[in-house]
Design a protein around this nucleic acid. Structure first.
Length: 403
RNA sequence: GGUGGGGUAGCGAAGUGGCCAACCGCAUCAGACUGUAAAUCUGACCUCUAUGAGUUCGAUGGUUCGAAUCCAUCCCCCACCA
């Protein structure tokens, strides 16, 4: 791959890139010395549940790997104690060694759905922060001024709005920056919200006599709601560990406008291809539903395979387009006899309590063998194979316990 | 340490003695419409053995026939000043 080709590939879809010339130089140097660049990504150890939002960044890392470079994946087991300055949860419970290792394992398994293990180095930042003594911490913090930290956008906003900023949060960017020194990063990748931290890494590297890293940011992916960024806490995400059916179903629920972002940022389709699809939809040549179906299938394929993708698509069409029952309905064992409908809903797991069961029945969401139920007090004579349905997604097949 | 402002259901935010299980918005769930689109409209949204009952408004104790609302003590948060 020529330098130009690499550069084009690596800069695609990026938001910030400090700086292009430096990246060019680094790439040239790496090629000349036959030494791969070190591409850093930091991860919080507390939430090993990767979703498509993370994939945006991981895709970029993979592209670096495809160009022959090495990814340094840092698990912030030390930083995890601090909590990222989101303004919400300032302190997080410290994770035990076992938990950290377990989470790390889970990370590895998920991250390698996208990255090449042979070109990935996994590090824990407790490795260098654990033994660090306080005098070193002070010396490190001497490298930054409060004004510099306040330059960070969200700090500035919160400070202006009289909202609290904990000292610990102030320290966070510094800690992350020091990671870059310790792993000797050539490039650090992150979401646009990470720009400040990435740039601070450059400063701190310079202080330590290193060549500053390239700071590269990727757009933040909107979640299923199309408004907020995809995040676990908002529940608007597609996890890489979701079942094919969930991935597909969730993909189908995004708005038509949003799906293009997914094509671009998650599937990394070239812009001209996306543009062509857009035009096809606009002219009526393709139905948006079919395009979205393609999105769903491609996403499933990304984490599973073509068979799973086709299966998920068919299943979806059967259940939602044709409104038929899904093929695999979870079975629930119950003793034979009569039972109140409300209790049945709860026992089967389709309602968290009788209050919720009532609401669902009153809303007309509950069906027994496809017959809509309206009577809250109904006593149901259980039969083997009876199908209880709640809304569009809740199904249960009853199996009578054998004596 | 001083002064002031706060802590209300998942979040935000009203309510400052009875009409309060607590206005409203967001999120969520369901129904209609559909392409499970999105948008929109409608309803629900503490729990339960359910036209009633029980537990909620930082914690504990008190005043009162009656408290989220008044009093006391305590805990926590924020801003400003030092």
């Amino acid at each position: 791959m020529t330098l130009e080709q690499q550069l084009e590939k690596l800069t695609a879809r990026t938001v910030d890139l400090h700086r292009v010339e430096e990246l060019k130089n680094k790439l040239a140097k790496a090629a000349a010395e036959k030494r791969p660049l070190r591409i850093k990504l930091g991860a919080d150890p507390s939430a090993p549940d990767l979703h498509l939002g993370h994939c945006v960044v991981l895709n970029k890392l993979r592209e670096f790997q495809e160009c022959g470079h090495t990814v340094v994946f840092i698990i912030g087991d030390f930083t995890g104690m601090i909590g990222d300055p989101s303004g919400k949860s300032v302190t997080r419970p410290q994770l035990s060694k076992e938990q950290v290792l377990e989470n790390a394992g889970s990370y590895r398994e998920q991250v390698f759905k996208l990255l090449d293990p042979a070109k990935t180095e996994i590090r824990f930042n407790s490795e260098w922060f654990g033994p660090m003594t306080f005098d070193k911490v002070i010396r490190l913090s001497a490298n930054v001024t409060v004004a510099q930290l306040l330059a960070r956008d969200d700090f500035a906003k919160r400070y202006g709005a009289n909202q609290p900023i904990s000292l610990v949060e102030f320290l966070y960017p510094l800690v992350q920056a020091y990671d870059s020194v310790m792993v000797n990063a050539d490039v650090e990748v992150g979401g646009t919200d990470q720009l400040f931290n990435l740039l601070l890494g450059r400063e701190i590297q310079k202080v330590h006599g290193l060549e500053p890293q390239i700071a590269l940011t990727m757009p933040l992916l909107e979640g299923l709601d199309g408004v907020n960024k995809m995040s676990k806490s908002l529940g608007n995400y597609i996890a890489v560990n979701d079942t094919p059916r969930d991935i597909f179903g969730k993909a189908m629920s995004v708005s038509d406008e949003l799906m293009w972002r997914y094509f671009s940022l998650v599937l990394c389709l070239p812009e001209d291809e996306i543009q062509a699809m857009r035009e096809a939809v606009a002219s009526g040549a393709r139905h948006p539903r079919d395009v979205k179906d393609e999105l769903g299938r491609r996403l499933v394929e990304m984490f599973y395979d073509a068979d799973a993708a086709a299966g998920a698509s068919e299943e979806f069409a059967r259940v939602f387009s044709k409104n038929q029952l899904p093929t695999d309905i979870p079975e629930v064992e119950l003793p034979a006899g009569k039972i109140g409908l409300l209790t049945l809903m709860v026992k089967v797991g389709l309602a968290s309590g009788t209050s919720e069961a009532r609401r669902l029945i009153q809303a007309g969401a509950v069906k027994l063998d496809e017959q809509r139920q309206t009577d809250i007090r109904r006593e149901v004579e259980l039969r083997d194979g009876m199908i209880l349905r709640s809304g569009k997604r809740g199904f249960a097949r009853l199996v009578l316990e054998k004596e």
